[in-house]
């Protein structure tokens, strides 16, 4: 049994987490769930959305899975997600995006991975008023962080047997910062002569994805570009309700669904657990439990193909319980 910190979050979080744990167990995942709180339940219990006790548990057990967590706006709390990435140095965000059966979208055969640098860029939150009416925000890029994320992407491409890495930038407008990012890309790519790579400005990537996303495989970029491109890519395959996500550092790893906590449907038992479940599959893969991970992924595809028991957002008339039942039944096939 591998201990994994399980943070249900709030809104629909506890429901989709419950469903996820059931499917993971049925798939043969050997996990000892260590429950911890973040978001609204943490505020109620500890007076803050991301208490130290939760962070300490993640530090102790190294691996966590997290449902959606709400950061109250305007109460002086920093974003839970930004803090987790920062405090745990989860420098790489990984978003695999692959076309799923039965989901009606205009794009087919999408199979790409967005790798996003998580610690720098405009997300450092360094902003100030120069004088009233004039704001400066700093976009920070360091060579170390650039090399680290690029190496992560190339290493991942090799491990997964992917064919190509595209380095995304805006070096014509930002010759110093993105110029340095590109130089780092050349140095890192030099260590991987067997992996094809190119670089493209962010606007051309946006155009290329809209025209034909099958041109892209692994894409690596800084924080803001990655934020925008990972959601754009999620849109190509059906949105945040079906794509998994992971935030990975050299010490810790956090797996999470990137959708919101959907307070409007919370507690009604109708939420779709697929995004979180697929994140759990990534987690199982990460800790070496490859077989249950693969079984979950194929069960998700089979469940969508069979269209039985699907939740409403997936075009069905079922609920969390019915889709969970299907997901478990389809593990055996």
């Amino acid at each position: 049994m591998t201990p994994v910190v399980m943070i249900p979050g709030d809104g629909i979080g506890p429901e989709v987490m419950n469903a996820t744990c059931k499917v993971v167990e049925a798939a043969g995942g050997r996990i000892d769930w260590i429950e911890a709180q973040a978001g609204i339940p943490a505020i109620e219990k500890y007076g803050e959305p991301l208490p130290d006790v939760t962070l300490d548990l993640v530090r102790k057990y190294r691996v966590a899975i997290k449902g959606p967590c709400t950061t109250p706006v305007g109460k002086g709390f920093r974003s839970i997600n930004v803090r987790l990435r920062k405090d745990l140095e989860l420098y790489a965000s990984v978003r695999p995006v692959k076309t799923l059966p039965s989901i009606k979208v205009p794009y087919t055969d999408v199979d790409l991975i967005v790798v996003r640098e998580n610690t720098e860029g405009l997300y450092a939150g360094i902003e100030h008023y120069v004088i009233p009416g004039i704001v400066e925000s700093l976009r920070l890029v360091t060579r170390n962080a650039a090399e680290r994320i690029l190496r992560y992407a190339f290493e991942m491409a090799r491990n997964l047997g992917r064919r190509k890495v595209t380095v995304v930038h805006k070096a014509d407008v930002l010759p110093l910062s993105d110029g340095m990012f590109l130089e780092a890309a050349h140095r890192v790519a030099d260590d991987y002569p067997f992996i094809e790579w190119d670089d493209q400005p962010i606007d051309r990537v946006a155009l290329g994805l809209a025209l034909d996303p099958t041109r892209y495989d692994v894409m690596v970029m800084e924080n803001l570009f990655g934020d925008v491109m990972s959601d754009l890519c999620a849109g190509l395959v059906g949105g945040l309700g079906v794509v998994p996500g992971a935030n990975i550092g050299s010490k810790y790893a956090m797996f999470e669904a990137v959708h919101g906590s959907a307070p409007d449907i919370a507690g009604k038992g109708v939420a779709n657990p697929i995004a979180l479940l697929r994140s759990a599959a990534m987690m199982l893969d990460h800790i070496g439990q490859r077989d249950p991970a693969a079984r979950i992924e194929s069960s998700v595809r089979r469940t969508l193909e069979r269209k039985t028991g699907l939740t409403r957002d997936l075009g069905g008339d079922g609920n969390t319980a019915s889709i969970t039942k299907e997901l478990i039944a389809n593990l055996q096939a």
Binding site: L122, P132, G133, I134, V135, E136, S137, L138, R139, L140, V141, T142, R143, N144, K170, V173, L174, P175, L176, S177, M180
Partner: peptide, 24 residues
């Protein structure tokens, strides 16, 4: 925005670019 292309090297390997926004 970032297209003001105001950038500088703070120390070797650390670059900051400014995103400028004005009310006017």
């Amino acid at each position: 925005d970032l297209y003001a292309s105001i950038e500088h090297v703070i120390v070797d390997g650390v670059v900051q670019s400014l995103k400028v926004v004005t009310e006017a």
